[in-house]
Every structure is written in structure tokens, then in C-alpha cells.
Design a protein around this nucleic acid. Structure first.
Length: 789
DNA sequence: GTTCTAGAAC
DNA sequence: GTTCTAGAAC
């Protein structure tokens, strides 16, 4: 039995406590024998064996009786064996919970012996408690093993011992027999996980040789109250509620490591070398050619693998059918890459340890350039598994990434990826995109694409190399030490050699992740507090025009962005002399951007924006609600607007229309409206460009709705017209607008609350009211131009 | 602008 | 008991 994980620091406090050991194994795997052997030779520790087949005065009882019996034993300070098959997670769950309610460690001992051995034992034996004997045994064991889910630490086990041979079993017997009342066994996963496929093959081969007399469902059910019949009657939905991704990965992860050079031993789990697990970059969502990608992976692995000492690189994909894995395997084999240092692995990259037994202290994420969660695939899975603290830690390192670059994010101890999987760092990497529906599409320009993909892997591997170098400075390079020394090792991180690569440099903020997360909320717009607090304090509360109103600190965000767009590159979509275009931080529709007026003195015409179009193309990602912000001081709201601003208003409108055009190119079904809020919440004049689907989780209340769907929303075309003719916009000061009853913007039907309204508008296809159809207030795709009164 | 939450509305 | 709103704090 080999040790496979750190001996987590669970020791002291658990001393002297009983332990619950859940046996996991098919009939005939030797569970009862295991218990007997331990109980016979364990003189120091009292053990109780809870066996469902005998719990009711020697007859089979219920699961609840087992739990009660186990509880009683634990209360008496006795350690407990749960002797039933427990092959599926759902069957184990309630016993694992014993640990929570009684504060004892729960262990699993898996007797994962060859199926034919279990079957032959079952066939031979007579008088077994479970009454599973004779010819029926084969089919029952086979069925049970097909449903087998090996236990994972994530289920709540402090320790899992997986035995795959008689000698493994003997080692485990010895370990538990030698356990004195004050001893504890190290926590973690011990022993290798086997591949389900091999076991099944063995069964099938065996069954062909053996007679399978009772090969039907009905016969199976007729097995009297045995372990087997109980278990086969239980539902298969043990992991109900998990997404299809994790479900798949769970199945796939049983396949385990696929070493591409057969000569090397298969026990990847035993190795504690620093290990980077990475998904294939750009070949999924970004539709990069996998032939080219596999060449680049192999090329870059060759370049780095020998610079990394004993560190390992592992290419991971969910399915054993993965084309990129097989291509890379073949090519790496051709190039004779050392398979100790580079191999492929089938599994869920967020569960390599708990689900696949593979230790990877660093995992790479195929991120998007905004470094945001969601979007599906690996990115969504990693952010989801990493929890909020990963998002916070990520934003601490960088706000965005260019294709071809990577950023190392040290994982806070609060992240489940850290605590459950032993991952100390996530490296986000953005590759080239060939998917026309995604941002920054390279339109099949593979000369550029390959260059960017090489850069991406270089950045990734360099990031990993930096971590390895840093961790090599600690006394040992093992995972145990990396985890224990995490905060220190981050401070020692070297600067990376590439300028676009952000290095890990975690600061003290981690100590209170919740507090920090709070401050993050307003980050994208509001982190430029220097100016608002010290730079121009008199402006921040300045009242101009007809209104007097002071601006709250949160209302400064757009102003800060407009004054210093270069400091907010991650949020900004376009910068010109006159305006800044950015995504609304809390979009209220599928598309919602802001066009913000920029700085003072330049009232020039809009053609200046054309030269910025390439920039836009690079920076644009599928966004929702855009705002065009005018760049000037003292121009905060419509009441500040005078005739002199007319050119600026026209520019803002034109810029807004350009973005509409772009969005319509992506989705011609959208309809847009451009306009200003009568009484905006944020200072600095800004034009909303918003699609009329209002399909957004950020649209939450009456004020949100009414600010875009009452006279509170002043159409840009009307404002331009009014300023042009009167020198100012018509401004009725009506506070009631935002609290008006909720009405559909299309059919004008009234709705009692926001949820009902939202469910209505997802279906309402009525023509827009005639007022909106006039004067170009609504903007849609050319093909829709005829939609009218 | 958002978040949080008490208490109203259902 | 749950859903939803609206006011306060930031």
C-alpha cells in the first residue's frame, strides 16, 4: 500500500476518538473477512461490526437500524465497521454523515479486487449471511460492479484505502489492527484507483466461461433479502442534481490516466512532483484546428519539459474519446517525450484529486479575456469549482488578458479547489479564437493563430515554471509543503519574464476574503478613487445646470473612466477624443453599452472614430448593455447640455449607432434604443445603448424597468432635436416616473411585479408602440426595417 | 449604481 | 411559508 497524499494536519484533535470504517466492495470481495481479521488481532481498540445482513437478530435489517447501531457504538467509544457493499455513493452517504454528527473520522476501505475473484468466492461459498451463493452470484456481482462508484475524499471521507490485491488487503488489515485507542491513521487517499473498464472486461470474460444460469431481472429480484438485491433495487440516481459535465467526468474519470508510452508504470497518483494539469487551449469553444493545436502542444511541451526539473505536465480532457488527447499522445510518443514528465489524463480538471487520484498542484484554465466565470466548458467548471475566492483572487491579479497570455492566480485557502483538490495555483490562459461567434475571432488566420497559441502555451508553461522555482525554495517540493507554505511561497514568486504575464503576488487581503470580496463589487468602475477623493473634490459635488444634487462616491465611476480611460482599459471598449464606450457594468439587456462624454475642449466630428475600429474589434466581447459616455468635465446630465454640446451629442449618437450596427451584425433579431436618463445615477453625461429584450438578471426592480421604459428615458434623437431647436433638452422633473406601474414596452399591458413582467416580456411579440416607431427611436437590422405601423 | 433586509403581499 | 418590494447603507 503506497501513500498517495499528504498527511493532513488532522492529527492531534482526533486522537482517542473512535473511527467509522465503511467497507466498500462487491459480495465476495472479503469485507466480512476483513472485519474479522482486524477485530481478531486488534487488542487495543474496541471494534463493532455493523452488518445489515445480520443486524436484526441475525437476520437482515434496514439501513436505519445500521445507523442507529453505529451511533450507539460510537457513543460507547467503540470504532465501527460498516459491513455492507456500499458500492454507490448514495448508499454510503448516510454513513458518511455519522462523522458529522459524532465528530469522528469516517474512513473507507475499498476492496477493489478482481471481479472474477469475488464471483468465484461467492459462487463457492455456502451459508453466507447475505445468502448470495451458487450460480446467482455471478450475475449479481456483475450488476453491482457495473454501478460501482469508487469513494472519493470529497464525499466526506477523512481517509480512503483502496485495495486491489490480497497484499493490499493484508496491509490495510495490519494498519487497522495496529491502531491503538489513541492512534489515528493519516488522512488522504491511499492506493491506486483502478479503471472500471478493465474490471468489466474481466467480468465479461469470466462470465463467458462460467455458466450464468440466472441472467434475468426477475431472478435477480428473487434473491432473498441479500445485500445484492437491496442494492440493485436502489435507484441509479446517486448523483442526482449534478450537471451533465460532472456526471460525464465522473464516469470518464474512472478511465484514469492514459499513459502514452506503455513502458512507464501507471501509478500517476503516487507522484508528488509539482504538476500542471492543463486543458487543450482554444480547441473547444474557440474552434482551433486540433491537428495544428496538437503540434503546438507537443512542440511547447518539448521546449519546456526538461526545464522543469521533476515537474510534470498533464494534458487533461473529459472524455477518453478526446481527439486532441489521442493526437497529442501519438505525437508525443513519436517524439519520445518522457512519459513520466508529460502524459494525458481523462477526467474533470476540477476533480483530478478527488475524482481521479491525480495530484496536480497547478491547473490551467482556458479563460476568456475578461477573466470572468461562466461561458461553459472548462472556464465555467473551474470558476465554479474554485468558488468566489477564485474570482476575487483572479481580479486581484488582473482584470483582463490578451490572447496568447496567461496569469498566475494563487488560490486562497478558502477555495474548495485548494482544500479539496490540493490546487495551489490556477493559471488562466487565453488562446487564439477561430470561432466567429466569440470575441477576437481571427477568421481562420492560422499564421497568426498558431503564433498566438504558441504564445499562450509559452506563457502558461512559464507561469508554471515560476511556481515550480518558487516552491523549490521551500524545504521540500512536495505537495504537503506547498500547501502548508502557501502564503509564504507566494511572496517569493519571481517576476515573470514576459511582460503580459502577471505573476502571483498575493497580499494580505486573503486574510479576510469576505471583506475583500465586498470591496470588489464596484471594482471595474470604481477603483480609481484617487481622483474622486483627492484630485478634484470640488467637482465631485458640483451642481450645474438647473439641478442641485451631490454625487455619491459610487456615482463617480463613469466620471473616473471618462477622465482617465487609459486606467480602465479592461472596462473600455473604445476611446476617442470625444467619448469613451464601455459595457454597462450591470447590463439590463443582452446588449447594453454606455457612450460617455470624455474630456474638455474637443467638439470635433465623429469621423475620428473610424480609425479606432480595429481597436474595437480586438477588444470587443459579446456584451450586453453599452453606454456611450461624453468626455468632459461639468457635463454630467441632460440639464448641463446646451447648444454648444450639439456636436458632441451627435457624435455620441453616431458612436452609439456604430455599436448597434456591430451588435446587429452579431444578432439581427435585436432592437435597440439610444437615450439618456432624465436624472442619472452616475455623473458624466452618458448615452445608453440598450437592446430591447431586457433579458438580464441585472434588471431587478421597478426603477430599473421604468428608467428605460418611461419618459425617464429620453431618446437620443429627441434630445438632439430639442437641443438643436431650443438650445436645451426638455426636462420635466417628475419623480413619479420611476415608480409608475409596470407596463410591457411592447403591448403596454400592466404587470403586478417584476418577475411577472419579465416572464411576460420574454414572450411578448407585439409591435412596439407607434411613438417608438417614429423618428428612428428604435434601431433594428435592415431586414426588419419594414416592421412598422 | 448595488446589496442587504425588514416586512408587506400573497 | 415564500415571494417581492422598497428603503437604508454604501
Amino acid at each position: 500500500m503506497d501513500m498517495d497524499i499528504d498527511e493532513a494536519a488532522k492529527g492531534e484533535e482526533k486522537q482517542g476518538k473512535p473511527v467509522v470504517v465503511i467497507l466498500v466492495g462487491a459480495p465476495g470481495s472479503g469485507k466480512s473477512t476483513f472485519c474479522e481479521h482486524v477485530m481478531r488481532s486488534s487488542s487495543a481498540r474496541p471494534w463493532v461490526r455493523v452488518c445489515q445482513d445480520t443486524i436484526k437478530n441475525g437476520k437482515a435489517g434496514t439501513k436505519a437500524q445500521c445507523i442507529e447501531s453505529a451511533m450507539n457504538a460510537l457513543k460507547d467509544g467503540k470504532s465501527v465497521f460498516i459491513d455492507r457493499c456500499n458500492l454507490e455513493k448514495e448508499q454510503r452517504d448516510e454513513f458518511v454523515k455519522l462523522g458529522g454528527s459524532t465528530q469522528v473520522d469516517v474512513h473507507a476501505v475499498v476492496l477493489d479486487l478482481p471481479a472474477k475473484l469475488c464471483i468465484s468466492r461467492s459462487v463457492k461459498r455456502t451459508g453466507h449471511e447475505g445468502n448470495l451463493q451458487g450460480g446467482r452470484a455471478a450475475v449479481v456481482v456483475n450488476r453491482m460492479l457495473q454501478k460501482k462508484e469508487l469513494p472519493k475524499l470529497s464525499e466526506g471521507f477523512a481517509r480512503i484505502t483502496c485495495c486491489q490485491s490480497e497484499s493490499d488487503v493484508q496491509s490495510a488489515v495490519d494498519a487497522y489492527s495496529g491502531l491503538g485507542p489513541l492512534d489515528t491513521l493519516p488522512s488522504g487517499y491511499f492506493g491506486q484507483k483502478n479503471t472500471g473498464a478493465k474490471v468489466q472486461l474481466g467480468i465479461m470474460r469470466f462470465l463467458k466461461k462460467t455458466d450464468g444460469p440466472a441472467n434475468t431481472e426477475s431472478t435477480l429480484k428473487s434473491v432473498p433479502d441479500s445485500n445484492a438485491s437491496r442494492i440493485t433495487e436502489e435507484k441509479e440516481t446517486s448523483s442526482k442534481g449534478t450537471g451533465s459535465l460532472s456526471e460525464n467526468s465522473r464516469k470518464e474519470s474512472k478511465e484514469g490516466a492514459e499513459l502514452f508510452v506503455g513502458s512507464v508504470g501507471g501509478d500517476v497518483s503516487l507522484n508528488n512532483s509539482p504538476t500542471l494539469a492543463f486543458p487543450s487551449i482554444s480547441t473547444a469553444d474557440f474552434q482551433f484546428d486540433i491537428e495544428k493545436a496538437s503540434d503546438i502542444i507537443v512542440e511547447k511541451v518539448i521546449e519546456f519539459v526538461n526545464k522543469l526539473g521533476n515537474a510534470r505536465l498533464v494534458l487533461v480532457d473529459l472524455s477518453h474519446k478526446s481527439k486532441i488527447l489521442s493526437l497529442v499522445r501519438a505525437k508525443a510518443s513519436e517524439k519520445n517525450i518522457d512519459s513520466n514528465k508529460f502524459f494525458t489524463f481523462v477526467g474533470d480538471i476540477t476533480k483530478l484529486h478527488s475524482g481521479g487520484g491525480l495530484h496536480c498542484n497547478v491547473i490551467a484554465n482556458a479563460a476568456n479575456w475578461r477573466l470572468k466565470p461562466g461561458g461553459g466548458g472548462v472556464n465555467a467548471a473551474i470558476f465554479s469549482a474554485g468558488g468566489p475566492s477564485l474570482e476575487v483572487a483572479t481580479k486581484e491579479q488582473a482584470q483582463s488578458l490578451y490572447p496568447g497570455s496567461a496569469v498566475v492566480v494563487p488560490l486562497p485557502a478558502t477555495s474548495p479547489l485548494f482544500s479539496r483538490e490540493g490546487v495551489t495555483h490556477v493559471i488562466h490562459v487565453v488562446g487564439p479564437n477561430m470561432n466567429p461567434h466569440r470575441p477576437n475571432c481571427l477568421n481562420n488566420d492560422y499564421s497568426k493563430g498558431c503564433k498566438v497559441l504558441r504564445e499562450a502555451y509559452t506563457s502558461l508553461f512559464e507561469g508554471f515554471a515560476t511556481i515550480v522555482r518558487t516552491q523549490a525554495k521551500s524545504p521540500k517540493g512536495s505537495i504537503e509543503n506547498l500547501q502548508a507554505k502557501l502564503p509564504e511561497s507566494q511572496e517569493h514568486s519571481d517576476s515573470a519574464s514576459r511582460n503580459h504575464f502577471t505573476n502571483s503576488n498575493q497580499k494580505t487581503k486573503r486574510e479576510d476574503p469576505h471583506k475583500y470580496e465586498r470591496s470588489k463589487r464596484s471594482k471595474a468602475y470604481q477603483d480609481d478613487t484617487e481622483d474622486s477623493n483627492t484630485g478634484k473634490p470640488d467637482l465631485s459635488n458640483k451642481s450645474s445646470g438647473s439641478r442641485t444634487k451631490s454625487w455619491g462616491s459610487w456615482a463617480q465611476a463613469l466620471y473616473n473612466t471618462a477622465m482617465h480611460p487609459e486606467k480602465h482599459k479592461d472596462a473600455v471598449l473604445e476611446i476617442s477624443d470625444d467619448v469613451v464606450v464601455l459595457n454597462d457594468l450591470y447590463p439590463k439587456a443582452k446588449r447594453h453599452v454606455l457612450v460617455v462624454a470624455q474630456r474638455e475642449g474637443l467638439d470635433r466630428l465623429s469621423d475620428v472614430h473610424k480609425e479606432h475600429l480595429p481597436l474595437l474589434r480586438t477588444m470587443h466581447e459579446a456584451k450586453r448593455h453599452v453606454l456611450v459616455v461624453a468626455q468632459r468635465e461639468g457635463l454630467d446630465r441632460l440639464s448641463d447640455v446646451h447648444k454648444e454640446h450639439l456636436p458632441l451629442l451627435r457624435t455620441m449618437h453616431e458612436v452609439g449607432l456604430k455599436w448597434v450596427e456591430k451588435f446587429l451584425h452579431d444578432d439581427s433579431s435585436l432592437v435597440f434604443r439610444l437615450g439618456y436618463h432624465l436624472d442619472p445615477s452616475m455623473r458624466q453625461l452618458h448615452l445608453h445603448v440598450i437592446s430591447q429584450d431586457f433579458d438580464s438578471t441585472h434588471l431587478k426592480n421597478k426603477k430599473h424597468w421604468n428608467s428605460f421604459n418611461t419618459a425617464f428615458f429620453r431618446d437620443s434623437v429627441d434630445v438632439v432635436e430639442e437641443v438643436s431647436s431650443d438650445g436645451k433638452a426638455k426636462l420635466k422633473d417628475d419623480d413619479s416616473l420611476l415608480s409608475m406601474e409596470l407596463r410591457c414596452h411592447r403591448c403596454r399591458s400592466a404587470h403586478p411585479n417584476i418577475p411577472r413582467l419579465k416572464s411576460h416580456i420574454t414572450n411578448c411579440q407585439a409591435t412596439f408602440p407607434s411613438t417608438l416607431l417614429q423618428n428612428g427611436r428604435l434601431v433594428h437590422a435592415p431586414s426588419n426595417v419594414n416592421i412598422g405601423p
